[in-house]
């Protein structure tokens, strides 16, 4: 069975007078180890889809199997447990906690897993080394560049070794150099067997992936393999 399987996922929001349907029957399959880019115009429902993929939200209807488990109808505490073990998030705006230094930010998911403080520090240091920030362990987010902050966020996403990394426009706030660094890390993770799903507006960025899924107005309009030269 594939790592991710979605069948006819719909998501609608109840507005004042009408039901706003944002996802209109998404079906997709993503295999273990795949590197997928999701593209589409603003407001097409990419982030909404990613929130469902990451178990931050539940679909209005349809089925979503993650590692064979049906997510629909799970309680919030079950969803939190899945996020804790199976998902690593990277956001456009980094979303690091300003009061914590790099090491503490990266260790946070391990804290929620109940890992001992000593092991937290060890594994967080290792993850920061992996993204090339072994020298910046005790810097606060405000003392780091945007590119470095995003690498801390990636370290935080991989520190629990989750089956899936979900990245919502990870290069959106970065200049091209910092963006290349981030994409380089994703490529290396992918080569090591990590499943990565990345939302982007940028066709060049999308071409780092294996496959590009195009979304328009809540529907998947195409899904193409990328041919690397």
């Amino acid at each position: 069975m594939a790592l991710i399987e979605m069948e006819q996922i719909r998501k609608s929001y109840k507005m004042a007078d009408e039901n706003l349907e944002v996802l209109k029957g998404i079906s997709l399959t993503i295999e273990q180890g795949d590197y997928v880019a999701i593209m589409g115009p603003s407001g097409s429902g990419k982030s909404t889809l990613m929130h469902i993929l990451g178990c931050l939200d539940v679909p209005s209807s349809g089925h979503y199997f993650l590692s064979g488990q049906d997510i629909a109808g799970l309680s919030e505490s079950k969803l939190a447990s899945i996020r804790r073990k199976q998902i690593g998030f990277v956001f456009q705006s980094f979303n690091l906690l300003a009061a914590l230094n790099a090491l503490e930010n990266v260790a946070l998911p391990l804290l929620y897993q109940g890992v001992s403080p000593g092991e937290q520090r060890e594994r967080a240091t290792e993850a920061l080394n992996q993204v090339g920030l072994g020298e910046r362990l005790h810097h606060r987010p405000s003392q780091l560049s945007g590119g470095q902050q995003q690498r801390v966020a990636i370290a935080r996403a991989i520190v629990t070794k989750p089956p899936v990394i979900l990245a919502d426009e990870p290069t959106g706030n970065l200049d091209s150099h910092a963006g290349q660094e981030v994409l380089g890390i994703f490529s290396r993770l992918h080569e090591a067997g990590q499943t990565v799903i990345m939302i982007t507006h940028d066709t060049q960025v999308a071409h780092h992936a294996n496959r590009i899924i195009q979304i328009l107005d809540g529907n998947i309009v195409s899904s193409q393999e990328v041919t690397h030269v």
């Binding site: 931050l56 919030e76 939190a80 996020r83 998902i87 906690l97 929620y112 897993q113 935080r156």
Partner: peptide
Amino acid sequence: IRKAIGASHSA
């Protein structure tokens, strides 16, 4: 953010 990285209701 804390919830996204796995904090439970009780945490």
